[in-house]
Simulated assay, not measured.
Amino acid sequence: MLKKSFVFCLFLLAITTACNKKETLYKVVKVKDGDTIELLSPDHQNITVRLAEIDAPEKSQAFGQAAKQFTADLCFGKMVKLIGNTKDRYGRTVATIELENGTNVNYEIVKNGYAWQYLAYSHNNVELAGLEQNARESKLGLWHDLNPTPPWSFRRDEKTQRLNKPKVQSTKPKRHYRKRRKKLPEAVSF
């Protein structure tokens, strides 16, 4: 009987702990671009987050500033949940962000036409594909453009241009500097 009571108490304690466990909330302190934000953790650490499964236009690209503004309007200064914690090659956390009310920030950006589903990193996400298709058909955000350039193509083209750009030789004459000789201290005589 004592053993059953003890097990029952442990079970109740486990359920109570699980129900009372609060999810960690982070504050959005910076929006770098349409799909990259900076969070402040409860222990005051800055975390750069690349939003998973989506790709927004680059800042220098058409609709890049609009995507950044939409993301800022949606979540800047708000408390959010961080879902996922993988790292990309730049050391950023790749994750889904949810507002306290349950709104999926990643999905909202695509739904409103400010990002593509990033097919290279979003495998079989039918819901996200549907949100993008609806935005395309409704000509929302970047879909106003007849033929918008996906960010991965834009980045590739930018890189190709940088690599193919001929290096320009400087027309300034090279300056030659003479090495100064150090003066030796004069000998002291006794």
Rank of each mutant, 00 (worst) to 15 (best):
I83C: 02
G113F: 10
V80I: 10
G91S: 08
Y114I: 05
E98I: 00
N104W: 00
K139V: 02
K78M: 03
F76R: 12
L140F: 12
L99M: 11
S138F: 00
L146P: 09
E127R: 11
N147D: 14
G77M: 11
S122L: 04
N112C: 05
S122P: 06
E132G: 03
N112V: 05
Q69H: 11
A95F: 02
A129R: 07
T93L: 04
R89P: 05
E98R: 10
N112I: 04
W116M: 11
F76L: 15
L74K: 09
N85M: 06
E98S: 05
H123A: 05
E137R: 13
D145I: 15
N106M: 06
N112L: 05
Y121I: 09
N124V: 01
A115L: 09
F76A: 12
M79E: 15
L99D: 01
L140V: 06
A129S: 13
W116V: 11
R92M: 09
A67V: 06
Y118E: 10
N85L: 02
H144S: 13
E108D: 13
P148E: 11
E137K: 15
G77C: 09
K81Q: 11
N134D: 13
L146R: 12
L119H: 14
E127F: 03
H144D: 11
T96P: 00
E137W: 04
T96N: 08
L119T: 15
R89T: 14
I97Q: 00
G130L: 03
R136W: 09
N125M: 07
N124M: 10
G77N: 12
N124L: 08
G102R: 01
I109S: 06
K78L: 06
K68L: 11
G141L: 06
I97L: 13
K111G: 02
G102M: 02
T96W: 03
F70E: 04
N85I: 00
N125C: 06
V105H: 01
G91A: 05
I83G: 00
Y118W: 14
A95M: 02
Y118S: 06
N134E: 14
L142H: 06
A115H: 08
N134R: 15
E100V: 13
A67P: 05
L99Q: 06
